[in-house]
Computed example of a mutant assay.
Amino acid sequence: MPDLSGLVALVTGASAGIGRHLAEGLAARGAAVAGLARGGERLRAAMDDVAAATGARTLAVPADVTDAAAVDAAVARVTPELGPVGLLVNNAGAIDAAEVPLWEADPEQWWSVVESQVRGPFLLARAVLPGMLAAGGGRMVGLASGLGTRGDARYSAYSAGKSAQMRITEAIGLAGAGHGVRAFDVAPGVVDTAMTRAMPMHAGRTEWTRPADVVDLVVAIAAGELDAWSGRFLRAGADTLDALRATTPAGDARRLRLLPYGDADPLA
């Protein structure tokens, strides 16, 4: 079990679901954890529970991830109270309200999903990364999805948002490489949460990704064990830590790229 003592982690969407599991998993390994979510009362209760269960220092910083001023204010609280953020986990995000084709979607709800998946991670990264650069490095994890690697007829907003989030991760990985900043996309698979239970596509599902698999992958990233995978896509429950540690990916492995139609493709 990696020892994360001395690390300060900021986890968005930390009051429930995967974010709540990640907050407790990081705290159990010694990290101080700041949790961010919109609902202040539920977030404070969750962070208090994490502190009680692990003995770690925690902080609740309520904010809407799509509100620039609120994000800046929340991040500004973390360093004085816990210390500089060394790990940012962009977990918060919404999903399409209905499984319908794009032209039947409500425009405002569709766009709010994209904002949560794109504007949110952008604003958090913009607020946190300068501190990482000043400290000589850090790591960012974006909660990705297989729906970000392919089109989907039913979840067009979520798919578009997750694809864009992967581009943000790759951009940070490339720009931060010379400054000790690394970024990763971690797809959690299908974890049993209120959100996934509400999705008709998962009705009747009996096999779920274990939350512990997601936590273990993020902990390994936080400990610096998977730095060779910066800017790339990892999948909890499918990738094993032993295989990831033993592999140095090359070229465009696990990155979003166009596939050539054949040897004669001028874009190949």
Rank of each mutant, 00 (worst) to 15 (best):
L4I: 06
G6P: 04
T12R: 15
A16I: 01
G19H: 04
H21V: 00
L22W: 03
L26W: 03
G40C: 03
R42T: 14
L43W: 12
A45E: 15
A46W: 03
D49N: 10
A52G: 15
A56N: 11
L59K: 09
A60Q: 05
P62D: 12
P62S: 04
A74K: 12
A76G: 06
R77T: 09
V78M: 10
P80Q: 02
E81N: 07
E81Q: 14
L87K: 11
V89K: 09
V89G: 03
N91T: 09
V100Y: 02
V100N: 02
P101R: 02
W103S: 05
E104P: 00
A105G: 08
P107W: 03
Q109P: 00
L123N: 04
L124A: 11
A125D: 11
A125V: 07
R126Y: 07
M132Y: 06
A135N: 08
G136I: 13
M140R: 11
V141M: 13
L143D: 06
L143Y: 01
L143M: 15
A144Y: 14
R150Q: 15
G151A: 09
D152E: 11
D152T: 04
A153I: 15
S156W: 07
A160N: 10
S163P: 00
A164D: 00
M166Y: 00
I172G: 05
A175V: 01
A175M: 08
G178H: 06
D185F: 01
V186E: 01
A187Y: 07
V191Q: 02
R197H: 10
M199H: 01
A203D: 10
R205L: 12
T209I: 14
P211K: 00
D213N: 13
V214Y: 10
V215W: 03
V219W: 08
I221E: 03
G224C: 06
E225A: 10
L226M: 11
D227W: 04
G231R: 08
G237Q: 09
T240E: 13
L241A: 12
L241V: 13
L244D: 15
L244Q: 13
R245F: 14
G251M: 08
A253M: 14
L256N: 05
L258R: 15
G262T: 09
A264T: 10
